[in-house]
Structure formats: C-alpha cells, structure tokens
C-alpha cells in the first residue's frame, strides 16, 4: 500500500470548520480544535433552543397579557377563565398583540372575559 498524505484534504477540513465558526468569541474562531468544539456545541444549543423558543414565547405573551389585565383591574387567571367561559378562542399570541396594537379592542375582550368569569358569576 502506498502511503497517503492528507495535504489538501486536511486544509479543506480546517477551512470548513473555521468558516462555520466565523464571528465566534476569542480563539473559538481561530483555533481548529476550539472551533470544532464550538461549532458542534452551537448546533446542539440551536437544536435545543428551537424547541425552547416555543415555550419562551408563550411565557412572554403571558407576562404581557398579565400586565395588560392588571391595567384593567383584572387578574390573568380570571381573564383566561372568562375567555373560556365566554367561548372566545383568541390565543395568547393574538391577545398580547391586541393589547399592544389595539388597546381598545383588548378593553372589550377584557370586559367580556370579566363578565363571564367564574369570579364574577360567584358574586352575582
């Protein structure tokens, strides 16, 4: 068997890694060994966080809806219960956008939720 030297293939492999690690912190974008590690890790975080993003966004919407409800003297739990009772099918993303871009519409949604909520029904 003739001896095979890696030559060009090795350069290509290093370049491929370093290209993927462009803009990384410190020696992570310079050293092949550090870059290799960082690229693999970045992929793993990206995979995990694409899934986590869905949860994180929902949490943000809930925080925003809570703030919007509090401005209207209503609790988040009461609001969500009222929506369910009233048969309003808006999801949390739509509600939070509504609270920011069309506060008057959110006023109406909130009023109707409060009216139908269990807390109000118990009082009546």
């Amino acid at each position: 068997m003739p001896r095979i030297r890696k030559g060009a293939a090795r350069t290509q492999a290093r370049k491929r890694i370093l290209r993927a690690a462009r803009g990384y912190y410190g020696s992570n974008h310079k050293s092949k060994y550090r870059a290799e590690d960082a690229v693999i890790r970045a992929g793993r975080y990206a995979f995990r966080d694409r899934r986590r993003l869905k949860r994180d966004m929902r949490r943000l919407w809930i925080t925003r809806i809570t703030a919007a409800c509090r401005m209207r003297d209503c609790r988040y739990s009461q609001f969500i219960n009222g929506l369910k009772m009233a048969g309003i099918k808006l999801n949390r993303k739509m509600l939070s956008q509504l609270a920011i871009e069309d506060p008057k519409a959110f006023d109406q949604v909130c009023a109707s939720a409060v009216k139908h909520s269990r807390a109000t029904a118990a009082k009546a």
Partner: peptide, 9 residues
C-alpha cells in the same frame, strides 16, 4: 417594565 404590555425582556 412588567407593568406594561410592551414588556421586552
């Protein structure tokens, strides 16, 4: 800023 609906973390 959690008192307003524009809250951005």
């Amino acid at each position: 800023g959690k008192h307003r609906p524009e809250y951005t973390p």
